[in-house]
Design a protein around this nucleic acid. Structure first.
Lengths: 253, 253
DNA sequence: TCATAAATGTTCGATTATGTTCAATTATGT
DNA sequence: ACATAATTGAACATAATCGAACATTTATGA
């Protein structure tokens, strides 16, 4: 196994288990503990994980900001199913707001089958993808580019969105909780999402089940702000019940 | 087997297996490991794969999904030489404006060696590239995305640029003429370039020799607006003489 | 606080991968 | 056809990775 692959597997393992010991990884990956320690050191130097005596945890336990490349492969099947369901809510000719993130990228792929859409997004990769594979009008907010996710942040992006009136918006979130609503790791991300919600007629939350029961730093809004929540059927039964008790339309795919 | 075929097979192999060792490819393709290493180097230089000790992995799936324009391969060597010269004019810590286009993308690649730059661009691919490979502050104008070039156009982009004061700007052009100056096929592109020129202290025209003696639809400005013109040494001798007669600094690479 | 077991870091060496250089061969251009 | 350039392979020097042994540090409970 190549070094880079081993390190990717460690990241993936940390994603799934949120922490790992040197011992278990050295057994699993069939290398000496010393090698795992050096890998942990590398991950720490690159701000991916934080070492601790005996093991390591991913940076920020609740909400991880993994670079796009690694992130995009996690739960990709679930994301595709969610995306297909989400895209089916869009009518030809509508104005659609797409939040940044991999789930919304998957939605974008399904939207290529529609006609005459106007798509507004803060995600540069979504903008490039749609502009090269459709003849939709693509609007991008502009502003400062966040380097981990290649999306726009900042007051400029918020101002841009204030001039938009959209038919439907798809909002992603890394942390969803029945009680605390949706939350983000940074105020600027929250500002963007808030404005997206404000300027669209219909609001859909798209998040795979792994994002639930997590709480981030800054609150965006409560779950009842959304007309629909689309997630996958691995969602915890209690959470399903709680959401439906609150009279929120929940779609499981 | 041709070199290009071999490299395509390597890419295909990487797409199927997501990683490959030097060893296995050299056996499979019946060339020495040295050749595979050189191929890997080429793939890395072109942002297709990432080398690691013993092998290589493919870069983010998404990037390769973006259609690779033929345009970017035309005169690529000349563009690289022009870009290297252009990048050498940038000091650490400066505010740099990069116009859209493949020559400016090459400049962006050389700029990764600098420190603490603030880069303003209308080109989404440049923005993604720089944001993922540097820790510069990247500002993007936003607005409507032109689908052929994945760059921003429109009044919104011009307004954004009005708030910028840059140290240096690199302007590309598909048509340069001593008498008519630089011209573009559309008014909106011309507006962007005009504003870029207006809000930067030092203005550099970058265009390979094939762009000269051509006249487009809408005039942007005269050649004497630029502090320097960087092009390649295939430029027609008469044109060289004419430009220098007009007292414009011309750099041939 | 101190003892102790466990984890960690350091150093070294073996192994393996890499880059450099040069020569031979094959394309390419004039 | 000839000169020139590009590609590839071969040989060697260099560099990187990983594991092992041992000294050091840390966590924790008595």
């Amino acid at each position: 196994m190549l070094q880079i692959e081993r390190r990717q597997m460690i990241i993936q393992y940390l994603e799934e288990h949120s922490s790992a010991t040197v011992e278990e990884l050295s057994t699993k990956l069939k290398v000496t503990p010393m090698t795992i320690r050096r890998d942990f050191q590398y991950l720490e130097d690159n701000n991916i994980a934080t070492r601790t005596f005996g093991g390591a945890v991913l940076n920020s336990k609740l909400i991880t900001e993994i670079p796009y490349e690694n992130k995009s492969l996690i739960n990709i099947d679930k994301k595709k199913r969610i995306a297909e369901q989400a895209a089916s809510l869009v009518q030809n000719g509508q104005i659609v707001i797409l939040d940044a993130g991999t789930t919304n990228m998957e939605i974008a792929k399904f939207l290529t089958k529609k006609q005459n859409l106007i798509v507004v997004t803060t995600d540069l990769k979504i903008a490039i993808y749609l502009s090269s594979s459709t003849d939709f009008e693509i609007l991008c907010t502009g502003g400062s580019v966040q380097n981990t996710t290649s999306s726009f942040l900042g007051s400029h992006a918020v101002e841009f969105l204030k001039n938009i009136n959209a038919d439907i918006s798809f909002i992603g979130s890394s942390s969803v909780d029945v009680e605390h609503g949706i939350t983000t790791p940074s105020p600027s991300k929250a500002d963007i999402k808030k404005q997206m919600i404000k300027c669209s007629n219909k609001r859909i939350l798209v998040a795979d089940s792994s994002k639930f029961q997590k709480i981030g730093f800054i609150k965006v809004c409560n779950l009842n702000e959304f007309h629909k929540i689309i997630t996958d059927d691995d969602l915890d039964k209690n959470t399903i019940k709680e959401i439906r008790n609150n009279n929120i339309k929940l779609i499981l795919v």
